[in-house]
């Protein structure tokens, strides 16, 4: 193996022997046999100067490490220690390693060392090795991120407040709807009711009370702002009095909404007693009428009363709400 001491810019430099080219393929497997080179440098042979025009003719091939390629190279320095003309096997390092070979070994050892050191320092912690400007950039990135997240937090808090307010509004609406449903249920007779009111007892005399007298009484109470009423017979039956309630005479009593009640009757009414009682007692009113028929009207239990009888509301078949 001879020296391959040629690179493109210097095809005229002192080269190896003419047979150097024949050695080359054998080298291919031994990538960096560092020593077996430059043995003949001390003897520049003009005859072989033009031996290898190939590298120059192939400009597409980059030299090893193009950057320092054209630098001047003194032939006599590094390989000078080697004896000239010694043939060295490419498979084994030279018996006397050249200075350049040793340098290459040192450099490669340094490279491995540096590589490992860098890998280690990168693996352990990456932040401290960053440049100040990188750190500043990271910091500003984090700041911007923090700002964005703060904005997002404010947005979400606003949304949460809005939703809570909506929730409260919904609860209020629900409460209101419940209140209206209760009111309407009491008016329609589907809910039991309790409140200030009184009880009116109708006791017939020798003749039974007519249904129109009871109806008069009920209308009078309605006119005096009664809100809920029920009528009980002496046999314990009770009927809630609503808008559609009818009264009819029946044998042995009074037919109220299809139920026959036996006299005497008791009407429980919720409303303002101070308004309803005078309404009953006006001259020529209900009380007088009943008296004329031989019966008696007794108002008692003024105070809190309960209306517990319920009216079975049927489904509406024709009326629809006007939307």
């Amino acid at each position: 193996m001879a020296d391959d001491a040629i690179d493109e810019p210097r095809p005229e430099a002192a080269a190896g022997e003419p047979d150097a080219a024949t050695d080359e393929p054998a080298v291919a497997t031994d990538a960096v046999a560092t020593d077996a080179v430059a043995t003949d440098k001390a003897q520049p042979d003009p005859a072989t100067a033009a031996v290898r025009p190939e590298p120059a003719a192939d400009p597409a091939q980059p030299d090893e490490a193009a950057a320092p390629g054209p630098e001047p190279r003194s032939d006599a320095t590094v390989g000078a220690g080697s004896a000239s003309g010694i043939r060295i096997s490419p498979w084994w390092p030279a018996r006397r390693p050249s200075t350049a070979g040793a340098l290459i070994g040192v450099l490669l050892a340094l490279l491995g060392f540096g590589l490992v050191v860098q890998l280690r320092s990168n693996a352990t912690d990456s932040q401290p090795s960053a440049r100040p400007e990188d750190l500043v950039r990271i910091l500003s990135d984090l700041d911007a991120r923090k700002d964005r997240l703060s904005q997002e937090i404010a947005q979400l808090q606003g949304t949460s407040q809005r939703l809570q307010a909506g929730n409260q509004g919904r609860a209020a609406a629900l409460q209101e709807a419940q209140r209206r449903a209760d009111e309407l249920g009491i008016l329609a007779g589907t809910l039991a009711a309790e409140g200030s009111g009184m009880r009116v007892r109708l006791i017939p005399g020798s003749t039974p009370l007519k249904s129109w007298m009871v109806l008069d009484l009920v209308e009078e109470l309605r006119g005096a702002s009664a809100e809920a009423m029920q009528i009980d017979g002496v046999d314990g039956r009770s009927v809630r009095i609503v808008a559609s309630t009818y009264f009819a005479d029946a044998s042995g009593g009074l037919n109220v909404d299809g139920q026959t009640l036996a006299a005497p009757y008791s009407i429980t009414v919720i409303g303002d007693p101070q308004t309803m009682q005078p309404a009953l007692n006006i001259p020529g009113g209900v009380v007088d009428t009943v008296h004329n028929a031989g019966g008696t009207v007794i108002v008692d239990q003024i105070g809190t009363v309960q209306v517990t009888a319920l009216h079975q509301a049927g489904a509406l078949r024709y009326a629809q709400p006007v939307s």
Binding site: A5, A31, A33, D35, P62, D63, E64, A65, G69, R73
Partner: peptide, 25 residues
């Protein structure tokens, strides 16, 4: 190093040049 290996395969390796190119790189 890769340049050196390639030059080696190309048969134009020169240790001096390698050292200098390494260091100067």
């Amino acid at each position: 190093v890769f340049g050196g290996i390639r030059a080696r395969l190309d048969g134009i390796f020169d240790d001096q040049q390698f050292v200098i190119s390494f260091v100067s790189n």
